[in-house]
């Protein structure tokens, strides 16, 4: 008895929360609808002038109209917030990289705790993933250098060469003979020039490119797995079982190298380039290198996507 009651309560609670979620969605749509906005804004200037003269004669009416106007004000501000949020979402959905401002809670933070945030959107499998964030601050002293940015915190995985990119596009300002050692090392003029100037836009673009490439590589590995029929129950007929692939998995942090395992114990390693082109494939069987199996797998493919298509037709 108790259990059924509990179940009922739980059911009702889930219903409540789902209804609440629906209300929020409807609110967010309605509050920014043109007609609502019109209603909210059209008599706004007249409202205070209406309430103020009446203040003396009718107490009840007065309080209700004050709450009315308060409510309306709240609605207007809510609507403005929602609109700003909508705009932000639009930018985020379309632009890929967006910026925002944040504050460092550390009381000792440099530059008054001002933080410039980069938000990098990643789309994978038709879904927006949690964006990656890079938070920059301006720790350098001096009139020239104070505009120079530095990466303060970030949420990028270590397989993205953020440090290298930051050193290239967001170099520390040259003060005195400080960075002389590093500029001496780089003989070419381009690096020396880059030493002076920071290029946030290029940094952001390069960074996003790395991030997107990385996710594409991960995606293609997942595609390969799917095409090879891994992770779903084996039907077993058709191909001889020892020719089947049993495992495809990334072998390094950047997901540029894949380990491929066959059921008969052969293992292979596929190296792909930044953009998914096949650089190398080695298959090693019991008796040394198995070139035939390698050719078998690739079938003249130059990109990993081609292998995916090939595997999909084979299995």
């Amino acid at each position: 008895m108790a259990s059924t009651l509990d179940d009922e309560i739980e059911d009702l609670q889930t219903k409540v929360s789902s209804l609440k979620r629906q209300i929020r969605i409807h609110t967010s749509t309605l509050i920014t609808a043109p007609s609502t906005r019109l209603l909210l804004t059209e008599d706004e200037p007249s409202t205070p002038s209406l309430t103020l003269p009446r203040a003396g004669n009718n107490n009840h009416n007065n309080s209700s109209s004050i709450t009315d106007s308060l409510l309306k004000q709240k609605l207007v501000s809510q609507s403005a917030l929602q609109q700003a949020h909508n705009q932000q979402c639009l930018y985020r959905a379309c632009a890929g990289i967006t910026t925002f401002r944040a504050r460092d809670p550390d009381p000792h933070a440099v530059d008054g705790g001002a933080i410039l945030g980069l938000r990098i959107e990643v789309v994978s499998r038709a879904r927006f993933l949690r964006p990656y964030y890079v938070l920059l601050n301006r720790p350098y002293p001096g009139p020239e250098a104070s505009r120079h940015l530095r990466v303060h915190r970030h949420t990028l995985p270590p397989c993205i060469p953020l440090a290298g990119l930051a050193a290239r596009y967001l170099p520390a300002p040259t003060v005195g003979g400080k960075s002389g050692s590093s500029s001496r090392e780089d003989g070419d003029a381009g690096a020396a020039r880059a030493q002076q100037k920071q290029d946030l836009a290029r940094f952001a673009r390069a960074l996003r490119r790395e991030v997107v490439r990385y996710h594409h590589r991960l995606g293609i590995i997942a595609d390969l797995k799917k095409a090879a029929g891994l992770g779903r129950p084996r039907s077993g007929e058709g191909e001889s079982p020892e020719r089947q692939l049993v495992d495809i998995s990334p072998a390094d942090a950047e997901a540029k190298q894949l380990t491929i395992e066959w059921a008969d114990g052969r293992t292979g390693r596929l190296v792909m380039g930044d953009d998914g082109e096949i650089l190398k494939l080695v298959v090693v069987g019991e008796n040394g290198r198995d070139r035939e199996a390698g050719r078998d797998l690739l079938g003249g493919a130059v990109r990993v996507e081609d292998v995916v298509k090939r595997l999909a037709t084979l299995v």
Binding site: R24, Q82, H85, C89, F128, R130
Partner: peptide, 9 residues
């Protein structure tokens, strides 16, 4: 979750 397609404030 923080997708730009979610318009709920």
């Amino acid at each position: 979750r923080e997708t730009p397609l979610d318009l709920v404030l």
